[in-house]
Design a protein around this nucleic acid. Sequence first.
DNA 1: CGCGACGTTGATTTGCCTCAACGATTGTGG
DNA 2: CCACAATCGTTGAGGCAAATCAACGTCGCG
Lengths: 192, 192
Amino acid sequence: MESNLLLSSIEKHIRLSDDDKEFIQQLFKERKIRKRQYLLQEGDICKYTAFVKKGCLRSYCVDKNGVEHVFQFATEGWWMGDIQSFNQQTPGILNIDALEDSELLLISKSDVDSLYARIPAYERFSRIILENAFISHQERIMQSICFSAAERYEHFSKKYPQLIQRLPQTQIASYLGLTPEFFSKLRKQMLK
Amino acid sequence: MESNLLLSSIEKHIRLSDDDKEFIQQLFKERKIRKRQYLLQEGDICKYTAFVKKGCLRSYCVDKNGVEHVFQFATEGWWMGDIQSFNQQTPGILNIDALEDSELLLISKSDVDSLYARIPAYERFSRIILENAFISHQERIMQSICFSAAERYEHFSKKYPQLIQRLPQTQIASYLGLTPEFFSKLRKQMLK
DNA sequence: CGCGACGTTGATTTGCCTCAACGATTGTGG
DNA sequence: CCACAATCGTTGAGGCAAATCAACGTCGCG
């Protein structure tokens, strides 16, 4: 039997019967998307939450000068979506696109609701995932408030060494709230 | 019968039987704390999540130069805690103190767990509260990334007009990531 | 091959900070 | 109830981290 990233990552937190697994599998739709392809554009309603099976996504917003600012990355085993737009089913301000050719599993809001109805423990799973996401956002806010650019970069490299390898510098700079130029100078300086 | 802010704010999201209500009530402990008094200090384990019945709390962290940075405010009907420290029961880096004399309802982690066990819908309630908190953090991150100081201030005044009245400027400045001096100059400039 | 994305480097500018000084208000102990 | 300290907000001069603008080299890809 093939390993199943989605189910195993759910089963890290709650127990599933074979029926549950079947039910879950059938609600998620496979979707491949190419590098640079959009999954969601500003102004759209976020119809699906994505689970990344393979590849890498990013979400970002665009400021009034047209500059992109990365909000989040998602590689294998991570979730991606615009939770605000998804929950309220109203137009959002996030863009989501692929940094690599990717394979996703998509689920709609009504299907998430039927998960909650049929598998009550799925509420628990969502809560735990949210708690973790919340904690990492909390950390990010504290850093942008308390830390210098160099400190933020250092922390990022320690926490996500694979991403440092995998992503273009431009994207990391944007995530850290820096221009690519300054980020380049910063790296050079830190090598000493 | 007196109005009960805690129960009514839970019942906005899930249904409670009279038994449930009784059970909930008895798990939360009343606590009054004075202005400037700590509820939590850096390095402590966050033993309680607080629901604010009356008054106003703030959480903040202190950077390596000793400067305080406000992370969150909580007035009547809001929840406050260090979710990371609370969940993992490990020492945290947040401080929490009172900006006004306040009345709180405190609940411990084990009591939250017994809520989940006895009232499964409470998982749902937590999930929803977390989703909302997550969304507002998301918004805050986007702003610190995309917006100038003036724009952030403008947004804050629109979203929390009561807080503008209620809180000292120093605290608002800190929440917005500015020094009190610069914040003062900014306000003067924006009045034109 | 040629174009577009990516990374680097240097010169200049700017948004916000630091430091210092000074009124106004609040609160507190004598 | 006053006196004094502490907190809070304001203003100005000077400084620094990071942005902007511009130019150039490299690589991968259609």
